[in-house]
């Protein structure tokens, strides 16, 4: 079957999709967006977290057909998404598939991520040393960014709660906590 949906602000079409396929598989294998990771395929690890109509979900548990007509944001589109949000403009320029596939972090020399192609939460993860192997990072970024959008001044308990569906096998979580606190602090300082 064919699935038409919006990915990172641009309309996309995936063809030859098997009816039992997950949104995660479509993103990775049909659209060539490997940012969302596949680790468990059973909702346990959160490394496949994307936003579906704004809501964080495990894309491995969304049937591809359920995404028809919906709006998906992946880690590849996070920087653009965050930029549009902070500009307060409704219309998003979006991230094309080519840009997304060629996505690379710029030099980590800006606090805000501006000019580096990073969202503030991505920059904070780098600055706080919250990335080791990096496999959990995309899912954590999407989940953390969504929490900061809802709750700009989270308590530690709020952060733990919001990230409780994301497993990390490397960091022991402390640096991840630091990164989210840092992103929140920078956000509230308006830098």
């Amino acid at each position: 079957m064919r699935v038409n949906f919006t990915v990172n602000g641009r309309p996309q079409e995936a063809d030859d999709v098997w009816e039992g396929e997950s949104l995660l598989y479509v993103l990775r294998e049909r659209l060539g967006l490997p940012g969302s990771k596949n680790a468990c395929e059973q909702g346990e690890c959160g490394s496949c977290t994307v936003r579906l109509d704004g809501v964080p979900v495990c894309s491995c548990l969304v049937a591809a057909g359920q995404a028809e007509g919906r709006d998906v944001v992946t880690v590849e589109g996070l920087a653009d998404y965050a930029r549009q949000r902070s500009c307060g403009t409704g219309a998003r320029g979006g991230t094309s598939l080519d840009e997304a596939r060629g996505w690379q972090a710029g030099r980590a020399d800006s606090q805000t991520g501006e000019g580096t192609g990073l969202s503030p939460v991505q920059q904070a993860f780098i600055d706080a040393g919250a990335v080791q192997c990096g496999f959990c990072t995309p899912g954590l970024l999407v989940a953390a960014d969504e929490m900061l959008e809802r709750n700009p001044n989270p308590s530690d308990a709020d952060i733990r709660e919001a990230l409780s569906g994301n497993l990390c096998r490397c960091t022991g979580y402390e640096k991840i906590m630091d990164a989210v606190r840092l992103a929140a602090a920078r956000q509230s300082e308006g830098v």
Partner: peptide, 26 residues
């Protein structure tokens, strides 16, 4: 039927279930 899919998709991903029809209630 598939609603949130948090049970159904696990079964499909692990090939525990191959229904003839998925009925999306979304």
């Amino acid at each position: 039927p598939i609603a949130g899919g948090t049970d159904v998709m696990v079964e499909i991903n692990f090939d525990h279930r191959r229904p003839e029809y998925l009925l999306d209630l979304g």
